Simulated assay, not measured.
Amino acid sequence: MLILGAGEVRAVLDTAQQDVLTAVRTAYELHARGLTAVPHSVFLRFPDDDRNRIIALPAYLGGQHPVSGVKWVSSFPGNISRGLDRASAAIILNSMESGAPEVFLEASAISARRTAAGAALAAATLSSSTPDTGVTLLGCGLINFEVLTYLRTALPSIDTVTLYDLDATRAESFADKALARWPELKIDVAQRAEDALTAHKLVCLATTASTPHLGTEYCRPGTLVLHLSLRDLTAESVLSSVNIVDDADHVCRAATSLHLAEQQTGHRDFITSSIGEILVSGKPYVRDEDTLTVFSPFGLGCLDLAVADLVRREALARGLGASLPGFLPSGEQLFA
């Protein structure tokens, strides 16, 4: 068993933005071609607790280097007030020959960066008729910081950022951190969500909202909303937009905004396409400048496997991680 802790995983990922984008794109394309297996995620919830949850995402990713495994990821929003990360995660990769677990990875960075890479890839793919030069980030936590990191790679035209968070201190802290990393950026902290939504035609929502609280009436026509947290937008906003997803069966579950829209209408005709189908088509996509486009990715487990396998391969090449011989029983031990 190879064990890769947070330090080793980040040592690989910190300089691998383009490789992660490529891995995520390949996974989306393989999924669109039917070369994945992605069972529905299992949500572990707790009695009298509607905020905290732990989710299991099993998956198989085909292609040149098939890989299978599972991500076990928790979301405990109260951690933020205690100075801890909201989410924590681990991934197990299994042998495709024997099925035995062979790699155990700390996966919080994998989870966050595949989310960010998927958002940045969507922003680059669902392009505007005029290049996006600014982005609004609602929710000033780890995910949107990673989104900004990957947008800087996928859309180098981005030079202006508008921030909004219910906690103004978090927004200011985010701005300081971003300016320290990218001093050339122009960053503004909005006092109202409405002002932030109006500022740019590229908007990313990464909040801890559990129920819809936001309409899109303040967004400009032609805006692309990266709806990463899945429960911010009202069903009415979803129904009035062009909707792109990663997988309709996955995203229309667990009281997401799209699930509520489906319950309201009794159908999924409001979903236009998946990001994988658009990528596989090979045709340039230009979003409608007269309406809004909403990208709602559930976050498929095959994306986590793609990034985890990238980390595994690079870690082995660098000699990173710790090997734990004897983790699995031998045949003799089984029958002793």
Rank of each mutant, 00 (worst) to 15 (best):
G266I: 03
D309F: 00
C140V: 03
E236K: 02
L21Q: 01
P47C: 06
D49F: 12
R25F: 00
P284E: 05
S229H: 05
T265Q: 14
S74Y: 07
A235T: 04
D85F: 00
G5S: 04
S296M: 13
P156G: 02
E102V: 15
T160V: 09
V280N: 02
A254D: 15
L324I: 13
A336M: 07
P77L: 05
L185C: 15
R10M: 08
D50W: 15
L126W: 12
A109M: 12
I275V: 09
T293C: 13
V147F: 13
E8Q: 14
R25V: 00
L239W: 07
R231Y: 11
N94H: 15
K201I: 08
R313G: 03
L202A: 01
R253G: 02
A124N: 00
D232P: 09
A23P: 01
K186N: 15
I55L: 14
G62R: 01
A112L: 03
V67I: 11
S74P: 08
V242A: 12
F335E: 11
S274V: 05
T211V: 12
V294K: 13
S257N: 06
L163D: 06
L230S: 09
P47R: 05
H200E: 07
L260P: 07
T153D: 11
I278N: 02
A27N: 00
R51F: 03
N52E: 14
Y285W: 10
R51D: 07
T211G: 02
P66W: 03
Y60P: 09
R33H: 00
A235G: 04
L233K: 02
F270Y: 07
I187T: 09
P101H: 10
Q263T: 11
A209L: 14
S129M: 12
L21Y: 01
Y218T: 07
L300N: 06
V135A: 10
A308E: 04
F298T: 01
L166C: 13
C204D: 08
A23F: 00
S323V: 14
E146R: 01
D167P: 10
V24R: 00
D165M: 09
V70R: 02
R25L: 00
L300T: 03
D85Y: 01
F298R: 00
Y285D: 05
Q64Y: 00
G62E: 01
D304N: 05
A254S: 14
L230W: 09
R192A: 06
V42G: 06
R287E: 03
H65F: 05
R33K: 07
R287L: 13
G69V: 12
D247A: 15
R181P: 03
G99K: 03
L316K: 13
D159A: 15
V9H: 13
N144R: 06
S68L: 10
E314A: 06
R220N: 03
E172V: 11
A209M: 10
E102S: 14
T160Q: 13
A175S: 12
T265W: 04
L300A: 05
D159E: 15
D232M: 11
R33D: 00
S74K: 11
E332T: 11
T272P: 01
A119H: 04
L300V: 03
A180L: 10
A100F: 14
P284V: 07
V307I: 11
E332G: 05
N79C: 11
R268H: 08
R82N: 13
L155F: 07
D48N: 14
G326T: 10
T256H: 05
G215L: 04
S210A: 08
Q264N: 10
E332I: 09
E97I: 15
E277P: 10
S296C: 13
E262T: 14
M1G: 11
